[in-house]
Write a protein that binds this DNA or RNA. Sequence first.
DNA 1: GCATTAACCACAG
DNA 2: CTGTGGTTAATGC
Length: 224
Amino acid sequence: MDTLCDCCNIKSSAAKFLSKKELEKLNNNCVQVTFLAGEIIFKQDAFSSNIIYVKEGLVKIHIKGPHNDQIIKITKAPSYLGIPTTFGNKINQYSATAISNTRICFIDNEVFKQFIINNGEFAYELVIELCHNELNSFQRCVNRTQKHINGRIADALMFFKNTFENNEFILPFTRLEFGNFVDTSRESVSRILTEFKNDGIINLDGKKVKILNEKLLETISKKG
DNA sequence: GCATTAACCACAG
DNA sequence: CTGTGGTTAATGC
């Protein structure tokens, strides 16, 4: 049974520092749930009651804005979700939706908090993860405001190439969602993608994308 | 001014 | 949902 946290082989880097006893405690205060692509894991404005650990799959984090739903980031397992939302605020500040089929562990807040307080190495690993997240979001912030659309779309394509570890992948987005991810309209996404296709940078068939000229794509991404 | 960029709108698969 | 063409506002040269 891999539901036992003790022998879980997808332990977070932080959970590796938990003692036998702590893992047992975790095991008794954590449930694993499977989500299908498209299912909502938790919703903005609802009470947050748990720490969420993504064991397997891809998840999108998104926030309702005044006009659109904005996709803040795509998170690939293994990763915690909702640490800021749970400790910073009782109410979820964002929603999380499964993009692929996903396995999630829901962990009791109080138990998690006790680990942080009592186990320095565990806490340290978490801080590292949070720092990475913050740096990434700073970076994304700069890119979003300073890069032109084709740069941002090139960024996104490179990102997917890296997360799927493949030059060929299926966009987990409609054009509208893609637009919400890179802060542009669905029309611009369509245009730039066909433009990339016509320039021989990618192959495009609906949501199927194959990167043909990674070097050029990289340049576009860098130059913005 | 003129050119470029990108959003908004409308219409058609 | 997607792609395309026209229009338009903002910005840069």
